[in-house]
Design a protein around this nucleic acid. Structure first.
Lengths: 226, 226
DNA sequence: CAAAACGGTAACAAAACGGTAACACGAAAG
DNA sequence: CTTTCGTGTTACCGTTTTGTTACCGTTTTG
């Protein structure tokens, strides 16, 4: 679960933010002053920080700067009173990623936070490896110990999806959307067929799959070795 | 010193970006609308353009298209608020090189910009060799063991592209943009024809290509020997 | 335990895709 | 002015890929 640190000294506002983010399913840490905030950031390494500028002890800019000085690079969204353009500029210069001006819509803040978290979640690699296998996306090449294994376009996309979401049970719908696209209507058994051919190409024993597991009623799951 | 043109209509964001890039040691030009941006690009020929899509007067796509129409080929990174894949594809088709969706992290934007500048800084080689072949770019001459092989202009550009991106699967769009230009609309089979003639000139067995490989549904890939 | 639901898979037909020869057109060269 | 060359399009062909179906075994459910 993703952790968010909210730094805000107005108790009512803090409470409101906390409830909203928790309702969305995030784990929320809070801090009411700069010092606490800094310690929490260094200690708990949250995935995102929402940072008010006006703070007791250490102000928001300083917190921002110090966090970056510690080489932490989680996104920071600063909350700044309306219209203070210079605040925004200063904030961005000290390493903030985005700003929201007060008064703000909670919906907007939630949306921006979600966008940052989505982005940092998907760090697409160029090359994926598991066991002896290696999928090179830019070269569009799948190999097992230097020996190329030919994959059709759909097979390639399917394997790519599995490798990008290892250990996660993917529903048939998710697979369909990712590999066949959103407006494509293929029969319900098409996925199975492609999983079978993929298994035949990568599983040591296709009848007892060790990589691509069937999750009954749901879909499939790719489980890398180790 | 490298010059960057930043096109963004939100003054606070523009200022923040400008400061960050200046801090990194770039010379920064700015524009707040499409018309100004276009003039600045044509006039000052920056090394990189960071281009917001939502702009007054002329929108970002149009700016992008017009810049390419003028045969300027500096990298363009578009900033798009909508994470819609179709928008991104539209942008890339109009000649953009990369996109960053808002909200974005400044760090990431700086990193991408640096990557593009690094790439364009390294002056391309003058001569490329593979197997017995040798492509001399300044002399516009292609030889096999001292014996010249005549290439038409388009064939030359195509081979040049392949040699510059060895081992990478190039999409038809990438090839089209690089060889035919951004605003050129030739039929979808034209590339294939030129690949065929190229193969006939360089492949020992054109029916079983060892250099220029077909990647179904994607495009082609040049694979140098060893 | 029987029936139903579900997934594995072989076989097949249709569609998609790329290779390429032939052709048309215009520009450049002779 | 004629010829040659470069370019882009089209049509035909073979291959690969894809989606569906049917049949089967296994698991779940009532």
């Amino acid at each position: 679960m993703e952790t968010i640190l909210i730094v805000e000294d107005d108790p009512a506002m803090l409470r409101g933010l906390k409830d909203n983010f928790e309702f969305k399913g995030y784990r929320v840490l809070t801090a009411a002053d700069g010092e606490t905030a800094l310690n929490a950031a260094l200690d708990k390494k949250p995935d995102l920080i929402i940072l008010d500028i006006m703070l007791p002890k250490i102000n928001g800019y300083e917190v921002c700067r110090l966090i970056r000085q510690e080489k932490l690079d989680m996104p920071i969204i600063i909350l700044t009173a309306k219209g203070e353009e210079s605040d925004i500029i200063l904030g961005l210069n000290l390493g903030a990623d985005d700003y929201v001006t007060k008064p703000f819509s909670i919906k907007e803040l939630l949306a921006r936070a979600a966008a940052f978290l989505r982005r940092s979640r998907q760090t697409d690699q160029d090359v994926y490896e598991f066991g002896d296998y290696r999928l090179d996306i830019p070269a569009r090449k799948f190999t097992r110990e230097a020996e190329e294994i030919k994959l059709s376009p759909k097979e390639f996309k399917l394997l790519e999806l599995f490798l990008k979401k290892p250990g996660r049970a993917l529903t048939r719908d998710e697979i369909l959307n990712a590999v066949w696209g959103y407006d494509c209507y293929v029969g319900p058994r098409t996925i199975d067929r492609f999983v079978t051919t993929l298994r035949n190409k990568i599983e040591p024993d296709p009848h007892n799959p060790s990589y691509i597991h069937t999750i009954r009623e749901i879909g499939y799951k790719f489980e890398p070795p180790e």
